[in-house]
C-alpha cells in the first residue's frame, strides 16, 4: 500500500515535471515600436492608385518559446492556418505558424491578388486569383521568415514566421501576450518584432508557476 502511494507520488511528480494540469504560464508585454508617421504618409502617397486601401493591420509582435523542447509528435490532426487578403492588406500582417503547417491564402477583396514570396525559407507564387476562387495552399516545411508580397498591390506586405516550436503567440495591438500550457525547464523566450528586432530573454519555468516577462524596446 505504501509502495503504491509512493509510486503515485513519483508519478504525480513526473507529471508535474512535464507540465501537467498546473501548466506553467508566461505573460507580459512587448513594447512595440511606434509606427512612424512618415511611413503612413508614404503609404498614402504611393498607394494613390488603390484609393480603397484599408488601414494596415495593427502592428504586433510574435512571442515564442525556444529551447530543448521535448518533441511532441504530430497529434494526427494536420496543422492548418490562414493568411487572408483583405482591404488590400494581408490579414493578419504577421502570422506565426509551426513548421509543417499548411497555410491557405483566401482573397476577401473584390480585386485580384497575386501573392508571392522570394524568401529563401519558402519560394512560391500563387498567380492571380480572386474572391471565392479556391485559394492557393502552401506547406511551410522549414523554419524561418517568409516575406509576402502581392504582385498587383505594391503596398501589401505580410510576414509568415515559421517556428520550430508549438509554443507561440501573436501579441495584441498593445504588445500583451499570455502563453499557457508551457513545460517546466529553462528556455529562451523570444519576441520577434521584425527581422532586425528580435528580443531574447532566458526564462526558467517551475511547476505551476506563472511568470511575468516584459520586452522593453532596445
Amino acid at each position: 500500500m505504501q509502495a503504491q502511494s509512493l509510486i503515485l507520488v513519483i508519478a504525480a511528480g513526473l507529471f508535474f515535471q512535464n507540465g501537467g494540469v498546473w501548466a506553467q504560464v508566461i505573460e507580459g508585454k512587448v513594447e512595440l515600436p511606434q509606427e512612424s508617421v512618415e511611413r503612413i504618409a508614404n503609404q498614402r502617397y504611393q498607394g494613390g492608385a488603390d484609393a480603397h486601401t484599408g488601414a494596415p493591420d495593427l502592428p504586433a509582435a510574435v512571442v515564442y518559446l525556444e529551447g530543448a523542447l521535448s518533441r511532441i509528435e504530430s497529434p494526427g490532426a494536420p496543422l492548418i492556418s490562414e493568411m487572408a487578403q483583405k482591404n488590400i492588406n494581408f490579414s493578419p500582417g504577421i502570422l506565426p505558424i509551426q513548421v509543417g503547417t499548411t497555410v491557405e491564402f483566401p482573397n476577401l477583396d473584390d480585386t485580384y491578388h497575386n501573392v508571392f514570396s522570394y524568401s529563401k525559407t519558402k519560394r512560391f507564387d500563387l498567380g492571380r486569383y480572386r474572391k471565392g476562387e479556391k485559394p492557393g495552399v502552401i506547406l511551410f516545411d522549414k523554419p524561418g521568415v517568409v516575406t509576402l508580397h502581392c504582385e498587383i498591390h505594391g503596398t501589401m506586405r505580410g510576414t509568415i514566421l515559421v517556428l520550430d516550436t508549438p509554443y507561440f503567440q501573436r501579441t495584441d495591438e498593445h504588445g500583451g501576450f499570455r502563453l499557457e500550457s508551457l513545460p517546466t525547464g529553462r528556455y529562451l523566450l523570444k519576441a520577434w518584432i521584425s527581422e532586425d528586432d528580435v528580443r531574447v530573454q532566458s526564462v526558467e519555468l517551475k511547476a505551476g508557476e506563472t511568470i511575468r516577462v516584459n520586452f522593453p524596446a532596445k
Binding site: F116, Y118, S119, K120, T147, H149, E151, G154
Partner: peptide, 17 residues
C-alpha cells in the same frame, strides 16, 4: 524601380529571380 517583384527579389538578394 517600383516593380513589386524587383523590390521583393532585391530585398531577398535573390539574384536569379
Amino acid at each position: 524601380s517600383h516593380s513589386v517583384r524587383l523590390r521583393a527579389a532585391l530585398e531577398e538578394e535573390d539574384v536569379e529571380d
